[in-house]
Design a protein around this nucleic acid. Structure first.
Length: 816
DNA sequence: GTTCGCTCACTTTTT
DNA sequence: GTGAGCGAAC
């Protein structure tokens, strides 16, 4: 490839002194390399000769790496692909490599471009580098997400792509609102052509690096009878008018910037001597193109990833990027990290056996020196309720055996599966947390609050102004909003300004006019206090005076209380910033807050959210055909989709350190209706030698196998797991789990060895008399207000005003 | 302009 | 079964 030649010719340049030093960016806080990295004549630290001379002890950060990890850290010249299997110490390699580059004097922190996908990953990397080099990480200004680095570059050169440096970044809500306007302006029926659909279409194009002009003709007809591209163009025009960007633009405009301004690109070529990319399997086409442009000036590209963990194809990730790496980057060194430090032998073998069914992969074989551990358990249950009951029982027993709840996770394919577990845990009083779910900044109340702050600081932000002009309800309805909108567009001024003009006239009727006047006056007052008042106090003032806080206080829904809590949390979080502006800049890009860990809880999350995490014990429920693998994925993406689902299964299994339990139901309630389910094809793809089939332990257990005689009515008749003689009287005591538990007890094995000790003791409910009585008024976090109608030990029967009758452990409610 | 009630849809999700 | 979003009625 052409740019590879360019890379070669630039290679020499990278070793020369930096002709464009960034005087404002201090170098890493590392002790100088002992041999003097500036003197090329001396053996380089870490080089073969240096190591032979016994100089390796000067690099303590290399100690403890295995040979492959070390190779990945030390392969500094030319393109490198590190295929890092699950649990093989990927982050350690990445951070050590960064430290190594700096320690070697190959480049200083600000000459390294290091990109991650999420803010969490970026934060983690900064943190770990800091720990490694014992200094500040301020010196790595180009470590961040694709988007944050994209913004940084774009702000410097905004004018070159038709923006002003202070451009705003639209969130999804703003995006949809704007698209709605574009659709309506085009005279289209907004019901027939929903803005959401257009948004995902345009997002898809942007992910693939396609500007309106480049969208293939065939695809343009998919939306609104061929108007898709026209709407895309109109949307882009509106964005420019608003001096705004959506997330996709951050990269797309970078591409345009680099392609149309070779001098700008060349500047970055001179700047970056090393490029590092984390989670390369998740890159989309736009990100790939962006990297390729930057890599033209820098042969030292190191991409780290795992093709087997590519699970984001549906949002534009191209597994092909990683599969094709050595074609794209000729002469690339490929290093495989296959030594797994996380899971036991059986778990690893199960995961490997499963993923081996995929065709499109580079191929890796994970191994461990650790123990075989427990086999992966597989069980079938009657329905989702029983599945939840059985898993909850297992967890209760584990908890009694001293297993930490923080080391237990339930990983589901789809979020609707979570409900059964939540219900069960609430009933049992089992503490749990849901990971993922709506993020802090995606919550309605947080977005509203931020919209207020944004309009205060920047009245020209139309989309935010529109969001809160009638929130809380103040009598400014759609008609009035529309008029403001039209006037603004007609005069070419922001809505805020249009609103100011409008209240001077008679155009609006009494109520609306007064409300709008008051609102504008309030904003004016708040704006006047930006410089004089502490930004956190101002935020509180705004939320109070706008009536926003009061509107939630008046709301009787069970969530209102937690929304108020969230608002307080937002203000608390603002303390971390010096100014309102600084805070707003941060939130437009970083959509998460590090949330504190509060005690021992079972984690429930989707398989997608589980990537990168690990737990001693992992439950994998819902392995049913249609649910997992998802029917929809298979319909939409065929074989590719199936393989992605299988990778998802692989990710799930490899999260477990000591024990993994897979289950599937025979009947699943979907949309309120029970449907009989087939076990997932993945179940039968598991390598038999490493799994153990548990009999169903429940009132239905064992019995259903004899329904109708033979295999009739037994959906698992074809399964090779169905080898044990089915007994109509099979009891818990026959299960392998029980027998194993007996063995463990007999051998006196410590509880830690068997994360979950299965015994036959039913989960005892406390017989402590409850302090609640029938008739008490109580409040529950999830169900809201209710009245106690029955007391049984510590379990209460409560009629909730909204949620109906539930049985709940008393510690989960509060007296009113 | 607000509220109620009906209909629809319903995988995964970061920035 | 449930929540969101929209249209019609108040």
């Amino acid at each position: 490839m052409i740019y590879c030649e360019a890379m070669q010719s630039n290679q020499k340049q990278a070793a020369e002194p930096d002709v464009y030093p960034d005087m404002d960016e201090v170098p890493f806080d590392l002790p100088p390399a002992p041999t003097g990295a500036a003197a090329p004549a001396a053996p380089r630290v870490g080089s073969i000769s240096a190591r032979a001379m016994g100089l390796r002890s000067s690099q303590p950060y290399l100690d403890g790496l295995n040979p492959e990890q070390r190779a990945a850290v030390e392969a500094l010249d030319g393109p490198v692909l590190v295929l890092a299997g699950a649990g093989t110490g990927k982050t350690r390699v990445l951070t050590t490599r960064l430290a190594h580059i700096v320690a070697q004097g190959r480049a200083s922190g600000h000459q390294i471009l290091a990109v991650t996908f999420t803010n969490k990953a970026a934060r983690e990397m900064k943190h770990r580098i800091g720990a490694l080099v014992g200094g500040s990480v301020e010196a790595m200004p180009w470590l961040g997400t694709f988007h944050s680095i994209g913004v940084k570059i774009l702000r410097r050169h905004a004018e070159l792509v038709g923006l002003k440096s202070g451009f705003t970044i639209l969130d999804t809500d703003d995006q949809i609102r704007l698209m709605k306007q574009v659709i309506e302006a085009e005279g289209l029926d907004k019901d027939r052509w929903p803005a959401r659909q257009l948004a995902s279409l345009i997002d898809g194009w942007k992910n693939r690096g396609l500007t309106p002009a480049k969208v293939p003709a065939g695809e343009a007809f998919g939306f609104a009878a061929g108007k898709g591209v026209k709407l895309y163009t109109a949307y882009q025009t509106r964005l420019k008018e608003l001096n705004a960007c959506d997330f996709g633009d951050l990269l797309l405009e970078n591409l345009r910037l680099f392609q149309e301004n070779p001098d700008v690109l060349a500047d970055y070529h001179r700047r970056f001597r090393y490029i590092l990319v984390d989670e390369y399997q998740d890159t989309n086409v736009a990100q790939y193109l962006w990297l390729r442009l930057l890599a033209q000036g820098c042969p030292n590209v190191c991409c780290v990833g795992d093709d087997d963990q590519s699970i984001y194809g549906w949002r534009g990730a191209e597994v092909d990027n990683i599969l094709r790496f050595d074609e794209d980057f000729k002469g690339a060194t490929v290093i495989r990290l296959e030594r797994n430090y996380r899971s036991t032998g059986h778990i690893l073998a199960t995961a490997s056996g499963l993923i081996a069914h995929n065709k499109g992969r580079l191929g890796k074989t994970l191994f461990t020196d650790g123990q075989d551990g427990e086999k992966v358990l597989v069980s079938g249950v009657w329905d989702d309720e029983e599945e939840a009951r059985s898993i909850a029982d297992d967890i209760e027993r584990a908890q009694k055996g001293g297993h930490r709840l923080n080391e237990i996770a339930i990983l589901v394919r789809a979020s609707f599966q979570m409900r059964a577990f939540e219900d069960r845990f609430i009933t049992l009083g089992m503490p749990y947390r849901v990971i993922g779910g709506p993020r802090f900044y995606e919550r309605q109340e947080i977005k509203d609050a931020i919209a207020y702050l944004e309009v205060t600081a920047n009245p020209a932000n139309d989309l935010k102004f529109e969001r809160i002009i009638n929130v809380p309800k103040r009598g400014i309805g759609d008609t009035s909003v529309k008029r403001v909108h039209e006037l603004g567009r007609a005069r070419g001024v922001p809505m805020y300004q249009a609103a100011q003009m409008m209240v001077e006239t008679e155009e609006l009727t009494g109520k609306a006019r007064k409300a709008l006047t008051d609102l504008l006056r309030s904003f004016g007052r708040w704006r006047g206090q930006i410089d004089t008042m502490k930004h956190t106090e101002l935020a509180e003032l705004i939320l109070d005076e706008s009536g926003y806080t009061a509107s939630w206080q008046a709301d009787k829904s069970p969530q209102a209380q937690s929304r108020l809590e969230n608002l307080k949390e937002l203000v608390r979080f603002m303390h971390e910033f010096d100014t309102l502006q600084g805070f707003l800049e941060h939130v437009s890009l970083v959509m998460d807050t590090a949330q504190g860990d509060d005690g021992e809880r079972v984690s429930i999350m989707t398989l997608h959210a589980a990537k990168g995490l690990e737990y001693d014990t992992v439950f994998l429920p819902g392995w049913e055909e249609g649910l997992f693998p998802s029917q929809r994925t298979m319909d939409e993406s065929g074989q590719e989709g199936l393989e992605e689902e299988r990778r998802l299964a692989y990710v799930g299994v490899t999260r477990a350190k000591k024990l993994a339990k897979i289950s599937f139901t025979q009947n699943r309630r979907i949309r309120g209706l029970f449907q009989s389910a087939m076990p997932s094809r993945f179940v039968d793809e598991l390598p038999e030698a490493h799994v153990e089939v548990a009999e169903v332990k429940s009132p239905f257990g064992g019995a259903y196998k004899n329904f109708g005689g033979g295999n009739f009515g037994n959906p698992y008749g074809q399964s090779r797991f169905d080898t044990k003689p089915a007994s109509a009287f099979a009891s818990t005591y026959d299960t392998p789990g029980w027998q194993r538990a007996q063995r463990h007890q007999a051998s006196g094995a410590p509880a830690a060895r068997a994360p979950i000790t299965i015994d036959a003791t039913p989960a005892a409910s406390s017989s402590e008399p409850s302090s609640y009585d029938v008739g008490d008024r109580v409040f529950h976090q999830k169900f809201g207000a209710g009245r106690v109608t029955g007391v049984d030990g510590n379990k209460l029967t409560i009629d909730f005003e909204r949620a109906g009758r539930k049985r709940v452990v008393d510690s989960f409610v509060a007296r009113r």
